[in-house]
Amino acid sequence: MATTIAIDASGDGTLTQRSAFWLFMRRKSTIGVLMVLPLLAIIAGLVAYPAGYSMFLSTLNKAETKFVGFANYLFLFKRETFWMVVQQSIIFALVAVVGKAFIGFVAAHAVNTIPTKGQRKWRGMMLIPWVIPPALSTLGWWWLFEPTYSAINWVLAEIGVDAIPWLSDTFWARFSVILVNIWIGAPFFLIMYLAALKSIPEELYEAAAIDGANAWQRLYHITLPMMRNIIAITVLFSIIVTFANFDIVRVLTQGGPRDSTHLFATYAFRVGIESNDIPLGASVSLFMFPVLAVLAFLILRNVRKRAMEL
């Protein structure tokens, strides 16, 4: 009896240490953490570090030699241009997203009525604006708008309409950047809404038809409620992406005329890189953060709610 205990004790000592380590390594949560580690490293290096660094930069003076606290932010609050950027960013994001959502919704319905056989072709064609790199397609648009050779103005002249100052008038410049953003972004809504439409069981429409609903009532009572979640998520997601847009404004107007088309990102670039005040540029870009954080929170909450409903 005594011998047995002794062997057990000596064996247990080494066994527990080694097997505890292996048990820890084999736990699902450990493996999970290990597997997302590369991604975490990338996020830390490419997102967390730059974000933290720009927060640090925003507290320095222009020469980056002295800590100035919130002085850069307070300075921005007093600038009229900054408030114009705030206003333009909001107008740009809201109008563009509503436009994209509306066009995507209508186009999704149109594509959905095409018989399945020919649908692929149309779906593919309608995705083109979204697939081309925006900087390139925006160059194409710039050529259409550009005052000297504007193809659109040429067509307008042919039908007897005066040339429109697409990029040099405040209203038309804002109109143009929003138009191009809608053109590029609408296909994303089209695809999301088309998928949502296809997931609505045909029987619901048949039941509604027997219940006496006409086309508008079917849209209002069946389609919209069934798509509510996907509409909410795509709109929130798109507001984030649109709000943080850079390339369209950069290529089309460089923020002009008179800074009237600047968004946070392009204004931060103008102030920080082109005017060589990196701390002030960092402060501008950080203003996006609270807005985007609130939107991201709303999206995540929405997704969680959706997951719970399933």
Partner: peptide, 15 residues
């Protein structure tokens, strides 16, 4: 809707 019929579907088709 004008045939004055009612239908019960296999998958119920409840809204």
């Amino acid at each position: 809707k004008d045939r004055n019929i009612a239908m019960v579907f296999q998958n119920y088709a409840l809204y």
